[in-house]
Design a protein around this nucleic acid. Structure first.
Length: 597
DNA sequence: TAAGGAACTTAGCAAGCAGGGT
DNA sequence: ACCCTGCTTGCTAAGTTCCTTA
């Protein structure tokens, strides 16, 4: 061990138990002796530029089960008449039938796209007959599907299905990367179905085809045995590219984009990348002041591009907007980010609600989530925006001279590795750290500490606009919680009177002390539970439309949270569930209480 | 420099599941 | 033992960024 240490192969000893035995006769201590080595952090040799691994072995993707034809007593009807469909047409019909409970199957675009693609799967004969979607009756298929779901629900307690599933995971769920067994993130191929984009997607309803082995490129180590394709099939290609991290890829037919099978977030490869991301963000912390000075200066530039870049950066920094690449029209839902903002997305107010120079944002961002915000900005920014909007139509780009490539090129010249998205990471993490400092008070109990943590998390989620639809049962569950609180309050009052009674009894009749203690404990228990429930109610109410998960998983340096837990004496399990702990194992392992982002 | 391709991160939804309450 | 509810997990779409090609 010491030889490795001296050779620089091992940078630190983790969990090494050292004992200093004393001599039994003279009781002097001997030099420390390493008696137990639990784990050592090895400084594994860095691979040369761009190389991600040396050996990679896996069993390829798991294919979804083949289509099972409908039973004889389930019928499709066209124009009121029973009609037996070909296997291919039947499969696609069932996709549609399965979705019938969803509102979007009533949407015009969805139906048109579905019908067009469905007809492509039909035989010539079928195509001649089936010419109008309105005359199609999928009700029996729909009912068949619902029965199947019900049946599976009842069956799900049976363990045998779990067994089969476990076998699949064991075989396909892991790979061997540089002699480490690593979990794969998405080893199951996406099953065929109807595409449902988010928002008003022009391609919604189109058929997402079944992926064949012939569509798949396998990536694995040169020396390793490539996975075997399903019997009677072959892979599109087997390659050995160790500059990338994916194990398999294919081109998806609806958007024509490439999809990948990659490692789980808890893998070494992903963990290191995550750590790097936060290190870049921390580096931004050390130079963000001069970068801010820079773009504030640029607001006065003679060059229009420079001014637009400065205003865009101001938004990205202050509001944590995404970069906003331009998108091909008609291929995706109409959403924008910073650089692709259009005139119609902002309204300027010289004065609003007692603030001067207010910019009102209203646009659809990623996933067609609405961004709505009224932001007071500095005068120079306000004037510039006015200028950018002059003589433009609502549909014109606000930053007509700017795009993400230009912006990122500038950013990387200010700091290596700096891009627009680093600002989101940086501002999210620094906000969490500041909020935790402000909100947490050492005297709080665990429940209140956690409320503070969630509030800090919430501040970040609001900044990043991470929304969610309030759960359908939200009002109901709030009401339930409140009635429970009322009940608990009554119980508390009761416990208190009983305690008083016990006290009196003790004075007058000298009844046993243990009874008094029991009653006091009951009051305490009630108070604790009441507080816990009240905190929970507050938390839930404040969280109604906010999604905390995304920021926790992708934007907040886990070391901030780990250090906070250590300082606050809160178990890490209270803020990270099992998956999250696995993903952030690197941070949980290395972070000391004095960590500062 | 524009356009498209490739690789990887970020995102919300909903099915599934576990754990608490009755 | 059972049911409900809220969290976890899987899923896969939708972004960003960097690279390649013309």
């Amino acid at each position: 061990l010491i030889m490795f240490f001296l050779a620089g192969k091992c940078s630190s000893f983790h969990h090494v138990i050292v004992e200093t035995p004393s001599c039994s006769s003279c009781s002097r201590s001997s030099p420390p002796v390493v008696i137990w080595l639990l784990s050592v952090r090895w400084e594994e040799e860095r691979y040369e530029d761009g190389v991600k691994w040396k050996c990679l072995e896996h069993n390829g993707p798991y294919f979804p089960p083949e289509y099972q034809p409908l039973p004889y007593n389930v019928h499709f009807f066209y124009n009121g008449k029973k009609m037996k469909l070909s296997l291919a047409a039947e499969e696609v019909a069932l996709f549609f039938a399965q979705m019938l409970d969803h509102e979007y199957t009533t949407k015009k675009v969805f139906r048109e796209n579905f019908f067009r693609d469905w007809r492509k799967e039909m035989t010539h004969q079928e195509r001649l007959v089936i010419t109008d979607l309105e005359k199609c009756d999928f009700r029996e298929l729909h009912a068949f599907h619902k029965d199947k779901v019900e049946a599976r629900k009842a069956l799900s307690k049976e363990e045998k299905q779990k067994d089969a599933n476990q076998k699949i995971v064991d075989k396909y769920g892991f790979c061997l990367l540089d002699n480490h067994r690593e979990r794969i993130g998405n080893f199951k191929l996406e099953p065929p179905g109807l595409f449902r984009g988010r928002g008003e997607h022009p391609k919604q309803g189109m058929l997402k085809k079944r992926i064949q082995p012939e569509d798949i490129i396998i990536n694995c180590g040169k020396e390793s045995k490539p996975p075997a394709p399903p019997a009677g099939h072959h892979w599109k290609e087997v390659r050995h590219d160790n500059t990338v991290t994916w194990l398999a890829s294919w081109t998806e037919n609806v958007q024509g984009s490439i999809k990948y099978i990659m490692l789980n977030a808890n893998s070494k490869l992903k963990g290191e990348k995550d750590w790097e991301k936060y290190e870049v963000a921390r580096k931004l912390k050390s130079c963000v002041d001069s970068i801010r000075d820079g773009y504030l200066r640029d607001l006065k530039s003679k060059q229009m591009v420079t001014r637009q870049r400065a205003v865009a950066l101001y938004f990205i920094d202050k509001l944590a907007l995404r970069a906003g690449n331009e998108k091909e029209e008609g291929e995706t839902a109409d959403t924008v980010g910073c650089c692709s903002l259009r005139v119609e997305h902002i309204t300027l107010h010289d004065e609003l609600d007692g603030n001067e120079c207010v910019v009102e944002f209203d646009f659809l961002g990623k996933d067609s989530i609405r961004y709505y915000n009224k932001v007071p900005v500095i005068k120079k920014v306000f004037k510039n925006i006015k200028l950018f909007m002059e003589n433009k139509d609502p549909g014109d780009e606000l930053f007509d001279r700017l795009n993400t490539a230009l912006l990122n090129k500038h950013l990387s010249s200010l700091m290596p590795g700096l891009t627009a998205k680093v600002f989101r990471t940086y501002n999210a993490s620094i906000t969490l750290q500041q909020q935790l400092q402000q909100l947490t008070n050492k005297a709080d109990n665990v429940a209140e500490k956690l409320l503070s943590y969630n509030r800090a998390n919430r501040a970040v989620a609001i900044l990043c606009n991470h929304q969610r639809a309030p759960p359908k049962t939200f009002e109901q569950s709030m009401a339930n919680l409140h009635s429970k609180i009322v009940a608990r309050k009554e119980q508390l009052a009761l416990a208190k009177t009983e305690l008083k009674l016990a006290k009196k009894e003790l004075k007058t009749r000298g009844s046993p002390d243990s009874k008094l203690q029991r009653k006091a404990a009951a009051v305490k228990r009630c108070e604790d539970q009441l507080l816990k429930m009240e905190v929970q109610a507050t938390d839930r109410e404040e969280n109604k439309q906010i999604a905390l998960g995304t920021s926790k998983l992708n934007y907040l340096d886990p070391r901030i949270s780990v250090a906070w837990c250590k300082n606050m004496d809160v178990p890490i399990e209270k803020i990270y569930n099992k998956t999250q702990r696995e993903k952030f194992a690197w941070a949980i392992d290395m972070t000391e209480a004095d960590f500062e982002f």
